[in-house]
Amino acid sequence: MSDEIVFYTTDPHANVAEGAEIRQLLAQCDLDFEESIGQFVLGRHGRSLVACAGLDGNIVKCVATAPGYRGESLSLKLMSEVIHLALECGHLHLFLYTHPKNVSFFEGCGFYELAEVPGYVSLMENTPVGIKGYCGRLQKKREPGAKIGCIVMNANPFTLGHQYLVRLAASQCDWLHLFVVREDVSRFSYRDRFALVQSGVADIPGLTLHHGSEYMVSRATFPDYFFKEKGIVGDCCTAIDLLLFREYIAPALGITHRFVGTEPFCATTRKYNNDMKHWLQAADSDAVPVTVVEVPRTACAGVPISASEVRRLLRAGDMAHVESLVPRNTLNYLTHNDYVT
């Protein structure tokens, strides 16, 4: 039994001493400790830490085994433990970011590659039916036409600007697929955001409103944590998300054009729009390019309408201005849910 490696889980923030050991092991493997990881699976041989893998929600990170202990069997034990721990935390479906050179190893652990930025990063998921199943379900919602448009919006909350963009895109296409970002990290809940979009586009013909998914604009597809510390915030940060769109979602629905509003306020969104042109159109890929259509924002009294502006006005308690930027349903919602201070 002295040969055995014992696995258990730990919270690196609560156990400072173990946190330090984890940092040391990661450093040996040229990896950085990430503060967002709430749980680590650790493997110990006697007293020494020989393997670790972190779980940040449903994203596996910081997988490392000590030099001298590398070998399939230890890593497979480690990854098996991670899968069981993740389920205890409520996650059956896992994502994993790794360098493309490690993809074949993680394939042996039941992970499947979703997208790769050559030389930088690959995104994998732990099911052979994840994105395939998702695209299969999307395919059933295909609509005929030569020009099929798509908009992915957070709608946090839904404004007259969103409504304008949807109406314009729908009028320019044979059909429009509209997605609402599902990740619940915004000020307004997904349920509420989706409901407001639904009522806000109800009278616009020629479109399908879809629920968002983990495969678009989610914590899993935006690995900015992955790059920040490495100083590669360049194109990679949004690349995985956009490649997933171009290689899976667009072909499933036959999308030819993706519409976005110009972004005057938010730097992140502005960068996302710029990257979109690169990864959807210019970058090398087996998938056909998707044309990016940037629509200048509609303005109100000379100021472009945006959700971030609405949130700013809400914080300032300036309801009079909010009223001129959002549709009636959004306004009712904001008034009745104490968002007005």
């Binding site: 069997s73 034990k77 098996s80 069981h84 042996g108 099911t127």
Partner: peptide, 25 residues
């Protein structure tokens, strides 16, 4: 959702999840 088994050699990992449709996928 549930999991059993491991990824180790001579073993298998089984994942099950409820499905809305009346079919086994």
């Amino acid at each position: 959702e549930a999991v059993a088994g491991t990824l180790e050699s001579s073993d298998l990992l089984v994942k099950v999840a409820p499905l809305a449709d009346d079919k086994v996928d």
